[in-house]
Amino acid sequence: MITAGLLMAVTFAAALLAVTLRNVLHAIFGLAVALLGIAGIFITLGSPFVAAMEVLVYVGGISVAMVFAVMLSTVVARQDEGGRRRVWAGLAALGFFAAMALVITRADFGPDSDPSEQAWAVAEIGGDLLTHYNVVFEALSLVLLIAIVGAVAISRREAAASGSARLEPGAIDPDGTGKSDVESEQRGQDA
């Protein structure tokens, strides 16, 4: 019980950091800590498998991809959004929270919601995903596919618009005028 409370506190604090910090990279690392905390909560709820997947996918995959995207762009310090946008963002977050809370409290999770080992066993989860929840599972993968295609399409259009080849992440920049210089200058000011 104490462990769970501690984990929730850590998760909440890290989530707060993730939305309040100015430096986008710090915010992402805050998010990573929050996700680790959530994985810990899953363990206290008796599901090490979901915890493992949480860390593998969200900390090891999504956060890393986000950091990567930020490093390839040049904007690192967030601009001040201004009061009105903050109000709208806060309202949207509250609305989302209310909707999620409503769905979760109203949902009927059935007899299997008991966090016993059997219900959370890996074989059980795998079987359910490929039989009972097959349609949802496939629909989710379709969403991901669309997101990837969309990202490629947008980046292609931008590359065509700027008319120049972009610097590859690991490419050698022979004359030293590449974006990495610009980036480090900006970060120097930021720090």
Partner: peptide, 20 residues
């Protein structure tokens, strides 16, 4: 899973050093 967490550490080192 633990291997994945280490990757974030490499990122933090590379970014935190402020060196191209």
């Amino acid at each position: 899973v633990f291997g994945g967490i280490g990757i974030i550490g490499i990122f933090m080192a590379g970014w935190g050093s402020n060196n191209k």
